[in-house]
């Protein structure tokens, strides 16, 4: 195939290859460096590491405060993924299938939080909570993060829903299925992969969000990103790198599970 290419095309291919490789390197290198640093045996951050040790991993797992914050983060992220799915899917339905006055305005409103910096949402939630004498807490964190993540879910669900043929619902009804049965038998199976993707992305987003969490999280049961934020300020050791490496591993594991179950190429749809 390459034999028949004109010289200019061949040069083009080489350039394209080099640019692609370089971009890939830029994307992946920081993660690889963080992972490398996490094996540093000494007490400060250095690259390349002077040896190999799991010392900082032990350190991380021995730190009650850190492991507690991981548990908090896991719960918070799960809750956020659940809430955004429960709210986002019906909202997406309304904004794609619904016919009501002010639909365009409602759509814009639903997707608005995406335009707003997380910090603003965090501060706004804090003030809003304060007004009702509702203190920063993990409940508030969950609410604020749900607001922050909702547009993701709505977006993904909307994109998929818009691609579904409404005739399929009619066909199902014609064959005797009620609305609920049609949803379960026809809509959901086709929405499934998109919803799994939405849940996974929301989970990851909620898990490592700092900007919103910084303002809304509980002072005692802090989630992992906030805990880390304070940790770096006082104590800059390879423990940070070890935690980062663990997070990278978690994201990787989620992607792997997704790829195996629904298939990566189906996720985008």
């Amino acid at each position: 195939m390459t034999k028949n290419l004109a010289p200019i095309d061949r040069i083009g291919r080489v350039v394209l290859g080099v640019v692609a490789a370089f971009s890939l390197l830029l994307l992946v290198a920081p993660s690889l460096i963080v992972v490398a640093i996490s094996f540093e045996p000494r007490g400060f951050i250095a690259f390349p590491p002077s040896g190999f040790s799991l010392r900082w991993y032990e350190h991380v797992f021995a730190n009650r405060q850190l492991t507690d914050s991981v548990v908090v983060s896991l719960w918070v992220s799960l809750a956020v993924a659940g809430i955004t799915l429960a709210l986002g899917v019906p909202a997406a339905f309304a904004s794609v299938r619904g016919t009501f006055a002010g639909k365009a305005a409602a759509n814009a409103f639903l997707l608005a939080p995406q335009m707003m910096p997380g910090m603003v949402i965090g501060i706004a939630s804090l003030f809003f909570g304060a007004y009702f004498a509702f203190r920063a807490s993990n409940a508030m964190l969950i609410l604020a993060l749900s607001v922050f993540c909702l547009p993701f879910v709505i977006r993904i669900a909307m994109a998929r829903l818009a691609g579904l043929d409404p005739r399929l619902d009619e066909a199902s009804a014609n064959l005797g299925a009620g609305k609920l049965e049609t949803f379960v038998r026809v809509t959901l199976p086709q929405l499934g992969p998109a919803l799994v993707a939405a849940a996974a992305f929301t989970f990851i987003e909620a898990f490592d969000n700092v900007t919103v969490a910084l303002f809304t999280s509980d002072v005692r049961g802090r989630p992992l990103p906030v805990e880390l934020y304070y940790l770096v300020q006082y104590d800059s050791t390879p423990a940070i790198a070890a935690i980062s490496a663990l997070e990278i591993g978690l994201s990787f594991a989620i992607m792997l599970v997704l790829a195996r179950t629904v298939g990566l190429e189906r996720l985008g749809r």
Partner: peptide
Amino acid sequence: YVFQSYALFPHLDVAANVAYGLRV
């Protein structure tokens, strides 16, 4: 009803498409 645009369920195979009304 036989739709002008067929409206087959893409996630079901032929047999399952035909069986749909019976399953319901």
